[in-house]
Amino acid sequence: MTDWATMLDELVRTRGDALVSAAYLLTGDLAEAEDLVQDALVAAYSRRRTDDDIRSAEAYVRRTIRNTFVDGFRRRKRWAAVRHLQVAPPSQPDDGAATPEHVPAHLDVLRALSTLTPRERVCVVLRFYEDMTVPQVAAELGLAQGSVKRYLSDAVKRLEHHLGPLADAHHIDLDVTHGGAR
């Protein structure tokens, strides 16, 4: 196996789940998250990328995931405009349908995240899920720190509208794999 193929194999084997989890926070849909990771891996390794280590490979793929998500917003917006034209069978209510008190907290977080703009959502995921500082988020996205602060401020207000007051927005747990917001 060539060096790039070995690195890709190791990245998918050891960090694949973490990449899908991060993409899931952006998309809110597991199938879309998996597709987003796949697209990012193809984009990153279609040029036979050679990284020195797994950490730099993962960082590059994570950046590609975020850029692909933000850039794909227009495509998703167009699809949303015509999605209603797709023929779908009528949904039947499930007898065991979840009532609001039985909906897991992480579903509430995902619904709230879906109300954010793509830039706000990426900033929130980087800041609170990836635990980056505002300067790190700004550097990662190529934005001014003031822009990142504005995106985060607007996002937290919108999240609070859906989730209730967030006592300390610096410690929001967006890890959907461990049970939701805290």
Rank of each mutant, 00 (worst) to 15 (best):
A22M: 15
L25N: 08
L26H: 01
G28S: 02
G28K: 06
E32R: 12
A33H: 02
E34W: 01
V37Q: 00
V37C: 04
D39C: 06
D39K: 03
A40H: 02
L41K: 07
V42Q: 10
A44R: 10
R47T: 05
R49W: 09
D51S: 15
D51N: 14
D51K: 12
D53Q: 02
D53C: 05
I54N: 11
I54E: 14
A57H: 03
A57K: 00
E58G: 10
E58C: 05
E58S: 13
A59I: 00
A59W: 08
Y60G: 10
R62F: 01
R63T: 03
T64G: 06
I65L: 06
N67Y: 05
V70A: 14
D71I: 07
D71N: 00
G72W: 06
G72D: 02
F73I: 03
R76S: 04
R76G: 11
R78W: 06
R78G: 08
R78H: 12
R78Y: 09
W79V: 13
A80P: 09
A80K: 11
V82S: 11
R83Y: 10
R83S: 12
R83L: 13
H84M: 02
H84D: 13
Q86T: 15
V87Y: 14
A88K: 15
A88P: 06
P89M: 05
P90R: 15
Q92G: 00
Q92L: 14
Q92Y: 13
P93Y: 09
D95I: 12
G96T: 15
G96M: 13
G96V: 11
A97R: 10
A97N: 03
T99N: 07
T99L: 13
T99F: 06
H102W: 02
V103Y: 05
P104K: 07
P104L: 01
P104R: 08
P104D: 06
H106P: 01
D108T: 12
D108N: 12
V109F: 04
L110E: 02
R111I: 07
A112P: 06
A112C: 03
L113W: 01
S114M: 09
S114W: 08
S114Q: 07
T115N: 05
T117A: 07
P118K: 00
P118G: 03
R119V: 10
E120W: 00
R121A: 02
V122H: 07
C123A: 13
C123R: 10
C123D: 11
C123S: 11
V124H: 10
V125F: 10
V125H: 02
L126T: 01
L126A: 09
L126I: 03
R127Y: 03
R127P: 00
F128Y: 14
Y129F: 03
E130I: 04
E130R: 14
E130H: 10
E130P: 09
D131A: 10
M132D: 13
T133A: 09
V134P: 02
V134D: 10
Q136I: 00
A138E: 07
A138K: 03
A139G: 14
L141K: 06
L141G: 08
L141C: 06
G142H: 00
L143H: 08
L143C: 04
L143W: 01
